[in-house]
Amino acid sequence: MHEMALRGDILQLVENDARSRNFKQVDKVELIVGDLSNAMPDALEMAFDVFRARGLGMLSEGAQLVIHKEAARSKCVICGHEYTPDRRLSICPECALPSGRLIAGETFKVQSYEGS
């Protein structure tokens, strides 16, 4: 479970930016987590619960975590068909060829945060 490490990366991004703006607290952190990003939303929630319980006195300690999931989508480079990929995600269901390329689902970003 690498979500504990990812939590550290997320907090570092938010805390550094918030401190540079002289914010005193962060109220909300919004993430975009793709289906194929290898980060599990539930595990991220748990990692943040552990962080809050520790009481480290950081700006984000009381922040609400909002996770926007990004579904996986593929597009065929031959016929242009867009589809929700399954087991063999590069196989275009129209052409039956390995011509599909992922166009969404790998994102793993801090979208925004709210601070004051």
Partner: peptide
């Protein structure tokens, strides 16, 4: 105040 970071984790 909302800050759009839009930054890879």
């Amino acid at each position: 105040m909302k800050i759009n970071l839009d930054t890879e984790v």
